[in-house]
């Protein structure tokens, strides 16, 4: 780090649990990560965004030539930063995985609030599935259980690997899984066997809810924050009976993918970046306001973004209204 004003692409993935940043070397081919940051969103995406950028400014001198935003907070990040590309995380994850290995056919991605299965053939996404209504079997749930058992989340996977005979835990629903674990604990079952059982249940749940009727061909990638869990990796390998690859930057793959997409879009359009500039973003006071619109009985939940007292954007209105709450039209 420290080389004077290196040209880089910035990718930001604002998820429910983590907000990730990467800088890709704009002069290198493919995804060459020169800096990355994995932050907890903690329910405050705006704070996380600024914290990440502040770290970035401190840890090097960069010239940002393009910006991409993805994740469930992508619209927000897109407006605050002035992103060149704002795209969904499925396309971003697939783009990142393909840049590591063009033969990837299956991507297992487990993040904080959702899990995804992406099926590719010949470098093209042909099918995908996301867990629908509930967050059972995602990172948040593992977090919660690790906390409850008093095991740091980083060691959770290693503890699972120590198990010799995993116990069976219900994986369909978080509530059932938890009561199952409590019962097994009360019977005096070894903690490693419970943790391993939980990982197995999550693998089982992932495959039965997302992979039903789908052919999981090699090469298989496992990415997202939960890929750090060695237990999950082993049980995926055992169940699918094939090796699972975890890319080096498994935890920020969405951010890498969106940075690559930004680079691609800017190269295609021969346009300069719309990025507002590091200092200007860090200096400005950005505030979000969420309220229920009272204009019609739909009562949509509207999010408004303001910078230094100036209205920037709003979304969430079913009628497509873009204006401010205090404006009449």
């Amino acid at each position: 780090m420290g080389s004077k004003s290196k040209p880089v692409y910035l990718g930001v993935d604002v998820g429910s649990v983590s907000t990730n940043f990467v800088l890709l070397d704009a002069e290198a081919a493919g995804a060459s990560v020169v800096w990355k940051k994995y932050l907890r969103t903690q329910g405050a995406p705006l704070v996380a965004l600024k914290t990440g950028l502040a770290h970035m400014a401190q840890e090097g001198s960069w010239r940002i030539v393009g910006v991409g935003a993805t994740g469930s907070g992508r619209e927000l990040a897109g407006v605050v930063l002035g992103a060149d590309v704002v795209k969904n995380e499925i396309t971003a994850h697939a783009t990142a995985a393909l840049s590591y290995d063009s033969n990837v056919s299956t991507i297992l991605e487990i993040g904080g609030q959702d899990s995804k299965l992406i099926i590719l053939r010949d470098g093209v996404v042909v099918d995908f599935a996301m867990n629908t209504v509930c967050a059972a079997g995602t990172g948040s749930f593992l977090d919660q259980q690790a906390h409850r058992l008093g095991i740091p989340i980083d060691e959770f996977g290693q503890v699972a690997l120590r198990s010799t005979s995993p116990v069976r835990i219900a994986g369909r629903c978080t509530v059932f899984a938890e009561s199952d674990m409590v019962h097994k604990q009360q019977l005096g079952v070894d903690i490693a066997d419970i943790v391993a059982g939980l990982c197995q249940a999550m693998v089982r749940n992932f495959l039965s809810s997302l992979a039903k009727g789908k052919e999981l061909l090699p090469t298989v990638f496992f990415q997202g924050g939960v890929a750090a869990n060695a237990g999950m990796r082993r049980f995926f390998e055992e169940t699918l009976a094939q090796p699972i690859y975890i890319p080096e930057h498994y935890d920020v793959m969405g951010a890498i993918g969106i940075a690559l997409l930004a680079a691609e879009a800017l190269a295609e359009g021969h346009k300069p970046t719309r990025f507002l500039g590091l200092e200007s973003v860090l200096r400005s006071e950005v505030a979000a306001q969420v309220y229920e619109c009272q204009r019609c009985p739909n009562a949509c939940e509207i999010s408004e973004i303001w910078r230094d007292g100036t209205f920037l954007a709003s979304w969430g209105a079913r009628c497509g209204r873009q204006g401010r709450a205090d404006q009449t039209s």
Binding site: S72, K87, N88, E89, I90, T91, D114, V124, V125, V126, D127, F128, M130, V133, E301, G316
Partner: peptide, 21 residues
């Protein structure tokens, strides 16, 4: 659910998929 984010993500990805296909 009242948040449209999940729905938009799926639709966007699906349309990307169709286009690339």
């Amino acid at each position: 659910h009242s948040s449209p984010v999940g729905l938009v993500t799926r639709l966007e990805a699906f349309c990307d998929l169709l286009e690339r296909k």
